[in-house]
Design a binder for these strands. Structure first.
Length: 119
DNA sequence: TATGTGACATCAA
DNA sequence: CTTGATGCCACAT
């Protein structure tokens, strides 16, 4: 156990939550951070994604910032790959921004009961 | 140990 | 709408 708590676990948590995002829906760094009990650590979520963006089992393209802007698209192989993936799932994207963001937004805190939480 | 960095969030102007 | 500043926490060096 770690007295100071969460190091690797935080990343693992992020991965777990991201994998739970349904197809055709998106979530935000802040929302995931809140779900993990760290509402101020949205940057960590981004960092976790950065560390995991090579992991194909993690749908990183479904994670955007709070306004639905595809801020992380430059980290994908193709400049349009992220948008392509989202549109492929039925998410409308215009000028790197998700349309109807409120409609497709998936907040783990609201949508997800506690059952998936490994803690 | 200290410093810099980041796929963010929020507020002020 | 934009820009700038601040907070946050883990990681890299």
């Amino acid at each position: 156990m770690k007295p100071q708590g969460n190091t690797v676990n935080f990343f693992q948590q992020v991965y777990v939550v991201v994998r739970l995002i349904p197809q055709g829906r998106v979530s935000s760094y802040g929302a995931i951070g809140r779900y993990l009990g760290a509402p101020q650590s949205a940057r960590m979520v981004g960092w976790a994604m950065n560390a995991a963006h090579q992991d194909a089992t993690i749908p990183a393209h479904r994670v955007v910032n709070r306004v639905g802007l595809l801020t992380g698209k430059h980290h994908f192989q193709g400049s349009q790959l992220m948008q392509q993936l989202l549109e492929n799932e039925g998410v409308e994207v215009v000028q790197d921004r998700i349309q109807n963001f409120n409609h497709v937004f998936w907040d783990p805190v609201k949508e997800l009961p506690l059952w998936e939480n490994p803690f």
